[in-house]
């Protein structure tokens, strides 16, 4: 009864966290692509801003996405469902991309070197989000 009462609010909070996470990830990748050809000293200001975005928005959103998502999966008993396992593969890939990207931003700032693009990462974020949305809404058997 209790879980059923808060379920829609958990879903709403989870979706909100996902929006901030994926929006932030996509913005990071697009901005890195745009500045990657510039000299390192011209990149520093943007990289500091991206690092702050990561610290204040995308990483908290990532943590909330996982906590709320696993709470939903546990409460609804979906942990052994095929669709959720496939969805988790894409979520892990997006989480890993975020970890690698934020680490590389830190490295570029510390070593004063130009940030490197991760080829296809922005397209990967879009495709992963589409697959995740379809799996979460359709829940195929």
């Amino acid at each position: 009864m209790m879980v059923a009462a808060i379920y829609p609010y958990l879903v709403a909070a989870h979706v909100t966290a996902v929006v901030f996470l994926v929006g932030g990830l996509l913005a990071q990748e697009r901005i890195v692509n745009a500045i990657s050809q510039s000299p390192p000293e011209a990149q520093a200001g943007v990289l500091v801003a991206l690092q702050r975005l990561e610290r204040t928005v995308t990483t908290p959103a990532l943590l909330l996405t996982w906590i709320l998502g696993l709470s939903l999966a546990l409460s609804a008993g979906w942990l052994s469902s095929g669709w959720l396992i496939v969805k988790l593969i894409f979520v892990v890939a997006l989480s890993a991309l975020h970890g690698v990207r934020s680490g590389r931003i830190r490295r570029s700032l510390r070593t004063r070197t130009a940030i490197e693009k991760i080829p296809g990462a922005d397209l990967g974020v879009l495709v992963a989000m589409l697959v995740i949305a379809v799996l979460a809404i359709v829940k195929p058997a």
């Binding site: 990532l62 996982w66 934020s102 590389r104």
Partner: peptide, 23 residues
């Protein structure tokens, strides 16, 4: 159980983020 699960994932992710910084 779930709290440790989240802590485990957080550790793996933070380790990845740290290593991606190089060195």
């Amino acid at each position: 159980g779930p709290i440790h699960g989240i802590a485990f994932l957080a550790y793996i992710w933070t380790a990845l983020q740290t290593v991606a910084g190089g060195g």
